[in-house]
C-alpha cells in the first residue's frame, strides 16, 4: 500500500533549480533510500514533504490524499541539522515536541515512559540537554521523532553522530518500526546502510531524479555479467583459454596453485559457455556473480550524468 507519493515536484530558488520534476513513492512497511550527493536537492524535497516549504509545481499525497496541514501528525521527521533546547530538561523537551505533534499530555507522558524504559535512560529525565553527550542527544531526538507513531518516518542521516553500538540500536529500532508497517524515507550518504536496510531507492543528482526503484531492480540494471571464479590450476592457462567472448577484468592469486579471476561475459555468452571454456584447463572450486555495490552504482550513475552533461 502506498503511503507517500510525490508527483512532478519543481522548486526554484532565485533562478537556481533546486528540484526538477521529481516523482517518488514509498510503501507501507518499506524503507526507501533517498540518495544523492551534497546539494542535490534532498533536503529541499524532504522539507516540501514536511510542508516546511511549498513546491512551485507538483503535488504531495499521503495515503492517497493530497497532503494537508493536519497530516503533520502522521509524519515523523529527524532532520540532518537537528538540535534541542540546551537549557531545557530532557523530559520537558520530549513532551513539548510530542504535544506539538498533537499528542495529548497524558498519552505523551505514557509513551515517553515506555521509550525511556526501553532505552534504559529514565535517569536522564531531569538532565538538561547541555549535560548530554552528542550521542545521548541523538537518542532523545530519535525518540521525539517516533513518539507520536508516525505512518511516515523521514530520517535524514540518522546514523551520523552515533557510535557503532548506538547506531546498531537505532538500526534495530528502524527495522522494528518497519515491521510494524511504518513507511521510512531514509536519506543518507552511508551506502553500506542503504544496502543493508533499504528496499527501494531514489537517486537525485543536480536536482533531477537519476535512479528510482526497488534496490534489487536497480542493482539488476547495473549488472555487468561479471563472475568471480575460484579455481585450482595455472592462471596462465586460465587466461589463455579465454578467447574474444570474455574479458578478464581482474585476477588474484590465493596461494601457489589457486586463484580467483573476475571474468566479464561479452557478446551474448552465457555462464555455461564460460564454464565449458575453462573447465578443461583448471579445477573450478566456486563461481559467484559479482554484483555492483551501492557505492559503485552511486558513483557510476553520477559520473554517467556528468558525462552526459559534457557531451
Amino acid at each position: 500500500m502506498e503511503v507517500l507519493r510525490v508527483e512532478n515536484i519543481q522548486k526554484e530558488y532565485a533562478g537556481h533549480k533546486a528540484l526538477d520534476d521529481i516523482s517518488i513513492s514509498t510503501k507501507k512497511g518499506e524503507i526507501f533510500g533517498l540518495l544523492g550527493p551534497n546539494g542535490a536537492g534532498k533536503t529541499t524535497l524532504i522539507r516540501i514533504i514536511n510542508q516546511i516549504i511549498g513546491p512551485d509545481k507538483g503535488k504531495v499525497y499521503l495515503d492517497g490524499k493530497l497532503i494537508q496541514r493536519d497530516d503533520i501528525g502522521k509524519i515523523g521527521y529527524l532532520p540532518e541539522e537537528r538540535g534541542l533546547y540546551k537549557k531545557m530538561k530532557v523530559y520537558d523537551q520530549v513532551l513539548y515536541f510530542a504535544r506539538l505533534k498533537g499528542l495529548s499530555k497524558h498519552e505523551a507522558k505514557k509513551r515517553i515512559n515506555v521509550w525511556f524504559e526501553k532505552f534504559e535512560i529514565t535517569s536522564w529525565y531531569n538532565k538538561k540537554v547541555e549535560e548530554l553527550s552528542k550521542g545521548m542527544a541523538q537518542k532523545i531526538q530519535f525518540i521525539s521523532t517516533v513518539l507520536h507513531e508516525p505512518e511516515l518516518l523521514i530520517l535524514d542521516e540518522p546514523f551520523s553522530g552515533f557510535d557503532p553500538i548506538n547506531a546498531q540500536i537505532i538500526r534495530n529500532e528502524i527495522m522494528e518500526l518497519k515491521a510494524k508497517g511504518t513507511s521510512i524515507l531514509l536519506s543518507t550518504h552511508n551506502m553500506n546502510s542503504v544496502e543493508e536496510i533499504c528496499d527501494s531507492i531514489a537517486l537525485i543528482n543536480q536536482s533531477k531524479l537519476v535512479l528510482n526503484g526497488e534496490l534489487s531492480t536497480v542493482k539488476e540494471s547495473f549488472r555487468s555479467h561479471t563472475y568471480a571464479i575460484q579455481f585450482k590450476g595455472m592462471m596462465f592457462g586460465f587466461a589463455n583459454a579465454l578467447f574474444a567472448g570474455y574479458s578478464l577484468e581482474h585476477s588474484e592469486q590465493i596461494d601457489e596453485d589457486r586463484a580467483i579471476a573476475h571474468v566479464k561475459l561479452l557478446k551474448g555468452n552465457s555462464l555455461n559457455d564460460l564454464l565449458k571454456t575453462v573447465m578443461p584447463v583448471v579445477d573450478i572450486e566456486s563461481v559467484n556473480e559479482v554484483l555492483p555495490s551501492m557505492n559503485e552504482i552511486f558513483i557510476q550513475a553520477i559520473q554517467e550524468k556528468k558525462g552526459g552533461n559534457n557531451e
Binding site: N50, I52, I72, I75, Y77, P79, E81, R82, G83, L84, Y85, K86, F97, L100, K101, Q141, S144
Partner: peptide, 10 residues
C-alpha cells in the same frame, strides 16, 4: 541549535 528544523516540521 537547529531546534527550529524540528519545530517547523510540527
Amino acid at each position: 541549535s537547529r531546534v527550529v528544523e524540528i519545530l517547523v516540521s510540527s
